[in-house]
């Protein structure tokens, strides 16, 4: 029989990567179907994790289901490896899976992220795992899951198009600056998770596999490598990724996504890279 005995884990009371094997199988089945139907949300029996819902439990379950002893794991939150929640999740996997971790994007085989995609182009050997708070791209327009499921089945995204049209009519551009919905493979409207619009183009035809986990909402979805991902827009109002028009005050980058830091109480500001690894690499650290 498929064993469910705890083993090979530094914390003996738990299985490797915390989840029991039956739960991993259930998640793995969902992941394969998610890859086969790009952008479609697969319901799964998300479990309570020892970290709170809303703090990355979906991403953690996906990572736990795919992680193996040969993987090198990087965890970022807001682009940074040293934000507290990233540290906490990295610690969790170091503890329950004894896995090798890194802050270097280039060295990682699995990158779990909240709110960013690294600046360094991803490669075929890498898997991105996104933590997703609200997987349903239509939830602000239609909160009922039974109804949004029907709209996805019909491919009826007129609600989102009308909202975008109204935004443009009212304020001249789209109202969403992050978590801007995307069309995947020309079929499914998908929440890219709350990444800034700046990162949306990185989803398009990426060499890496992108997996999305929403624990509280109990959904998994995926964008396979080399798959078309288009930000929702209109021909005469094309989607425009935005960044602060400054240079990073640490590495000087004029192309990376920047965090704005309040430097003093006179309104003085400095800008630094949100991707800490990219910034360090550019500085030659």
């Amino acid at each position: 029989m498929n064993a469910i005995t705890p083993r090979n884990a530094p914390e003996n009371a738990y299985n490797f990567a915390y989840l029991d094997e039956a739960t991993k199988r259930m998640i793995r089945r969902a992941i394969l179907k998610a890859i086969a139907i790009p952008g479609h949300q697969i319901p799964f029996g998300a479990r309570e994790m020892p970290l709170p819902y809303g703090w990355g439990t979906g991403g953690i379950q996906v990572t736990a289901a795919i992680l193996g002893p040969r993987d090198v794991l990087k965890v970022i939150d807001q682009g940074a490896d040293d934000t507290t929640n990233a540290v906490s999740i990295r610690r969790f996997f170091a503890r329950v899976a004894n896995v090798q971790t890194t802050t270097r994007t280039a060295e990682a085989t699995i990158i779990q992220t909240r709110h960013r995609i690294p600046e360094r182009p991803l490669t075929e050997g890498q898997v991105m795992v996104f933590q997703v708070p609200m997987p349903e791209p239509l939830f602000k327009l239609e909160p009922r899951l039974a109804e949004t499921r029907r709209l996805h089945a019909l491919g009826d995204y007129s609600l989102a198009q009308v909202k975008l049209y109204e935004d443009i009519a009212k304020q001249g551009e789209s109202g969403s600056s992050y978590n801007h919905p995307v069309m995947v493979g020309g079929r499914y409207l998908m929440s890219p998770s709350p990444i800034p619009g700046f990162d949306n183009p990185k989803l398009h035809n990426s060499p890496a596999l992108m997996l999305f986990g929403a624990g509280r909402e109990k959904k998994i979805y995926a964008v396979p490598p080399y798959t078309s991902v288009e930000s929702l827009d209109f021909e005469d109002h094309p989607f425009r990724p935005m960044r602060a028009p400054q240079h990073c005050s640490a590495c000087g980058s004029a192309t990376s996504y920047l965090d704005e830091i309040i430097a003093d109480d006179q309104g003085g500001r400095i800008f630094v890279c949100s991707d800490t690894d990219h910034c360090a690499e550019t500085q030659g650290l």
């Binding site: 064993a3 394969l32 795919i66 193996g68």
Partner: peptide, 17 residues
């Protein structure tokens, strides 16, 4: 059982992707 299943799944995941 743990690492065997993981290795088999990763082969399947890469194949499907």
């Amino acid at each position: 059982p743990v690492f065997g299943a993981q290795e088999a799944f990763r082969a399947l995941m890469d194949a499907m992707a």
